[in-house]
Structures are given as structure tokens and as C-alpha cells.
Amino acid sequence: MMGQAIQVLVDAVSVGGLYALTALGIGLIFGVMRLINFAHAQLIMIAGYAVLLFFAQSAALAVLGAVVGAVLLALLIERTAFRPLRGADPATLLIASFAVSFFIEKTMIMLVGSRPKGVDFLSALARQVEIAGVRLQLLQLVTILVSVVLLVATTWFLKSTRLGLEMRAAAENFRMAEVLGIRANRVIATAFAISGLLAAAVACLFVAQTGLVQPRMGLQLVIIAFVGTVIGGLGSLPGAAFGGFLVGVATILLQALLPPELRVFREAFLFLAVAVVLVVRPQGLIPARGLKERI
């Protein structure tokens, strides 16, 4: 019984970590641009295909390929689609990101077909290990470790480097930051690069877990992580990470605790929670500073 509880807990924390990384990637972009980046799903997808391309050579090369692929794609969409729209109203940005997301997905389906492909990536990690009488999957522990390291690293970057400080300033009040001499292009491009990096990490962990790559692979992750971004507080980075983590944990706990006939409605509960949070506490659990719309 105790062992089972720990298993569920580890499961919850590892899934929570995955969603926290995804939500942080979405939250970073929202912070600096007020843009909800649907195309984050395609960053994860492209990283997944990079893994597919290189996993036969070596795992390290696959991870490197995933990072390079996702970061390049992130920079590309920033430069071509979102930079010309900077300063447009949020509804336009929302439509643009929806279009970018669909364009990349449909192009990928046209190029490689929509069928999933099997990837034998880091399958050694999928085996069970026994720690103090509890059977755990090594991959889950690795997921937790990677999530913690990346969250700490991102926090360090934002708190302790000049670029990170500029990014936080831009998230708080973009116009003021620009007036004070922060170079908008550099800050926003960096935010996209980091979000690409986070997407690549999520993709590697996710592919190792499922062993599959397909053009729609990032979608489900991003939709759920997006819930986390909203619940945590749009525009707040700790909020995004915490909200993502919370949502991940909640999915696993709902899965474990809900009666079977209600389990299938899990996501409906999550999105009901989104609507409730938006109405009752629109600024989220950890509100962002400086988000209040000015007249």
C-alpha cells in the first residue's frame, strides 16, 4: 500500500515536471510578448523528429539534434511571423500563432505522413529499478532530475544574468524596458531560444517514454500545459512552472482516485478548472506584476 502510494507520487511528480517545463516554455513567450504560442507543440514535434533522425547514431547526438532543431525553429518563427506583428493586439497574435502552429503541423504531415514512427531512444531507462522495496521506472527519476535541473537553471538565468534581468523587466513592462535601453529583439529572441530548449528537453523525455514520434505529438502536452499556465497566472514565470506542475500532478491523481467511469472526463475537469480560475481569480495563483491593462 505504502509502496503503491510512493509509485503514484513519483509518477505524479515526473509527469508534473514534464508539464512544468512545457508550461514554462509557453509562459516565457507570453511574458515578453503577450503571445500564447500554440506553435510550442510544433517545437516539441520537430525535436521529436530530430531524435528520430539521430537516435541510431548516438543518444547524445539525438539530444543535441533535438535542441538545435527546436531552437532554430523557435528563432525562425519569431523572426518571420511574430516579429512583424509585435505590438499588434492580442487577438491578432493569437490567430497568428494558431496559423503558425497549423502551418508547421500540416507541412510536416505533407512531408512525412501522419503515421507514428517507432523510436528506440533511451529504452534502457524504461526498465524498472527497485529502491527500498519500491519498484520505480528509471526514466521517471531521470525526468524528475532533468525537470529540476532545467527549472533551477532557468531561474538562475532569469535572476542572475543581465539578459535574464532584462527579460524580467520586459515581461513586467515592455515599453518601459525599451525606453530604458533594453534591446527588444535580443530579449525576445532569447526567450524564444530558451522556450525551444525547454521544448527539446520535453520532447526527449516524452519520446523516451512513449517510443513514438508523430506530427501531432506535442499537441496534447501543450494543451494540458497551457491549462497550467493559465491556472498559475498568465505572464508569471513561477506561476507557469508551478501551474504546470500542479496540472501534471492533478492528472495523475485524478487518474488514480477518480472512479473509472469518470476517469475519461479527466480533461473536462481540468478545463472546467481553467474557466473557474479565469472567473474567480483571473490573475492566477501566482499573479504576474505589471500585467494589468493600462488605458
Partner: peptide
């Protein structure tokens, strides 16, 4: 009734929630 009070982008997210909830249900 509750959701239309939200400001622009939050209202859009709320409508997205309607889509997902109806799809799942």
C-alpha cells in the same frame, strides 16, 4: 454568463475551454 465578463484574451482562452470540455464530454 460568467465567461463574457472576461477581458479579450482570457475570454478567448475560456472559449477554448468550452471546446475541450465539449469534445471530452
Amino acid at each position: 454568463f460568467p465567461l463574457m465578463r472576461l477581458s479579450g484574451i482570457s475570454a478567448s482562452i475560456a472559449t477554448f475551454a468550452i471546446l475541450v470540455v465539449s469534445y471530452v464530454v
